[in-house]
Design a protein around this nucleic acid. Structure first.
Lengths: 195, 195
DNA sequence: GTCTATAAACCGATAGAC
DNA sequence: GTCTATCGGTTTATAGAC
């Protein structure tokens, strides 16, 4: 079938970006691993590498958000949700030889000061994550301002731990970061319902 | 003077790595901005780009560590130290158009799964940061295990916030992350001295 | 040690046959 | 819509004059 060449290119690029980042992922490498002809890239993405990257950022950002949302929505409370999420991240990281962490963090840092179009794309993804997380924290009973702050704490905790974990090839930082996120949650709970 | 060509190359490379990362920083760009002849790179770094990068990672890692240590050593207690550190990071970030965050985070993510020599160099730097931070937390009265965990929480909090802050061009994530780090510190204090 | 010239490979992008 | 050939420019790296 004419099936899925475009989707295969996007999926392959997403994986390569997560492991090697944006500048060091060549279009030749993408089509080679996707099993697609070189011309297909410019057929589906006339804007070239930048347009492909923008779509990859949004697509993989959405996919990762849905993955985390599924975990959060199964948890009975905020602390359990965070602990489950961090544990799942640690498992995935170790199981993939410390490659599968955040799908867009590397690219986000690379383009932050060099490509404003792609920077804005990563900002939109992070913003959607924050809003999705904040909605869950509101549902768990936190005031809007606290809910947003805790969502940011959750995401930054994951992102920061990913940096150290991938460098050290150890999940220790994820465990430590999780303890800080749950401490922040408990502190916010005590303010609204001190014992 | 024959002065400082090598040091100028290292310093220039460090700044370029922080803004654009490792693969997209060309050797030509480095010598151009450092005002050095191209041959000097291979004269001082026979191992080429990788050897230069390894030295840059270690050098800028050490410099950033000393910067943070100076802030921590002036603070009267752990919570004040963390709050001052995060506030300083936010100021620097905003003042440099969201460019000057962690000097090695971008490179660390880029090489984590692609260059084990450089990955090990970033891991050594993070490890030195953790040990330096843990020593301060021990001095503030925390038990060794808590001290190490809180040092990791501090560093991952900064790193994670940097990712979101640079993408969003806002310091909000640093404020949120700081609140989680101080919450973790207070929680550890309460365990050893409950009220 | 400084500096230039250049090699060999690779990059993103394009043209055009099929 | 698939696929190849190729352009012009860049990359890292090397050779060699001074």
């Amino acid at each position: 079938m004419a099936a899925g060449t475009r989707e295969r290119i996007v999926a392959t690029t997403s994986e390569l970006f997560r492991r090697q980042g944006y500048p060091s992922t060549g279009l030749k490498q993408i089509v080679a691993e996707a099993g697609a002809p070189f011309g297909s890239i410019y057929h589906f993405f006339p804007g070239g590498k930048q347009q492909l990257a923008a779509e990859v950022i949004r697509t993989s950002g959405r996919a990762y958000q849905q993955l985390v949302e599924a975990i959060l929505d199964e948890a009975p409370d905020a602390v359990t949700a965070v602990e489950t999420g961090f544990a799942a991240a640690a498992e995935t990281l170790a199981a993939t030889d410390y490659a599968d962490a955040c799908p867009i963090a590397t690219v986000a840092l690379e383009v932050a000061s060099t490509d404003d179009t792609l920077r804005a794309a990563t900002a939109e993804v992070f913003d959607a994550w924050v809003e999705a997380g904040a909605a869950r924290f509101r549902r768990w009973g936190f005031a809007p301002a606290d809910a947003r702050r805790l969502a940011i704490v959750f995401i930054t905790g994951l992102e920061g731990a990913f940096v150290l974990c991938r460098a050290a090839r150890s999940t220790e930082a994820l465990t430590a970061a999780a303890s800080a996120v749950t401490a922040a949650i408990r502190a916010a709970q005590e303010v609204s319902a001190p014992r």
